[in-house]
Amino acid sequence: MSTTPNANPASHANPHTGAAGQRPPHMATRLAHGLLAVRNEDGSVTLEMAQPLTLQAEELEDLVTDLAGLRAELDPPYPLDCPPLCALEPCYTPRHWVACDPLTGKILLFLRHHLFGWLGIVQTPEASLEMLKSVAVEMKKLELSERSPGQGLH
């Protein structure tokens, strides 16, 4: 999380962060565009502004990135299991970009979400193959359900 305005949260080591990545209660962090985030003892965060903000799309993206970094530090953490589909905001046919990073031997997958912009995933070739297999299984289910519509999808 950034401690200076307009900074990339991943690019800063923060001396106020503990070993588990948790900030002590009442630790203030300056987010993009002067927004101040204060961690409360109950685990919540209070956001404070000195004045109203008017933001263009790129400036709002900076703030969303900082807020996402703040969310990643909160407890409880993101659930490991995917929530029910009805609880998600799906992105239909997103633009995507895939590449191999020859320096690390990892696969880079970027998806453009209509709400959150470009989301990057870095994974091993083995994990990428597992993802590909999962997609193939779901495509096979679709193919089978088209042949016998009474079966439906689960």
Rank of each mutant, 00 (worst) to 15 (best):
L55R: 13
N14V: 00
T65R: 03
A72Q: 13
E143T: 00
V135P: 13
T104M: 09
L60F: 02
V38N: 07
A32H: 09
H154C: 05
C100N: 11
S128H: 06
C82A: 14
R39F: 04
T46L: 07
L129Q: 11
V98E: 00
L144A: 05
R71K: 10
R147I: 00
T46Y: 00
P79H: 09
G117R: 10
M49L: 15
A7S: 13
L111N: 09
L31C: 06
M131H: 04
L111K: 07
G34P: 01
V137T: 13
D75T: 15
R23Q: 02
P83K: 08
S134E: 14
L31D: 06
L35Y: 01
E146S: 12
Y78I: 14
E126M: 04
P94D: 12
L109A: 05
N8C: 12
L115F: 08
R39Y: 07
E89K: 11
P5C: 15
Y78K: 05
L55M: 09
F116D: 11
I107K: 04
L35E: 10
L103Q: 04
H12E: 08
S148R: 10
T29D: 04
E138K: 01
D42E: 09
A87P: 03
P24M: 08
V64I: 14
L115N: 09
G21N: 06
D101I: 14
G150S: 12
H114Y: 00
H33L: 03
E130P: 00
L153D: 04
H113K: 02
N40C: 11
A72M: 09
E73C: 08
L36Y: 01
G105C: 06
S145Y: 01
S148L: 07
R23H: 02
L108W: 15
L132C: 13
H12K: 07
L67Y: 14
P84F: 07
D62K: 12
A7R: 11
C91G: 11
P149H: 02
D101Y: 01
P84D: 14
V45R: 04
R71Q: 14
L74D: 12
S134L: 05
M1Y: 01
G34L: 13
Y78S: 12
D62E: 09
P149Q: 01
M49T: 15
E73Y: 01
S148A: 12
L47A: 10
C86K: 10
L35P: 02
R71M: 12
E126I: 09
H96L: 11
T4Q: 14
T29S: 01
P94V: 10
A37R: 02
Q56K: 08
D62W: 13
N40L: 12
H26G: 08
L144I: 00
G152N: 06
W97Q: 13
Q123R: 06
A13E: 08
H12Q: 11
P5S: 15
P90M: 03
H154E: 11
L142S: 01
L67E: 12
L36K: 05
E73S: 14
S145D: 05
C91Y: 12
L103E: 03
M1V: 09
Y92P: 14
A7T: 07
R23W: 05
G43Q: 05
E61T: 15
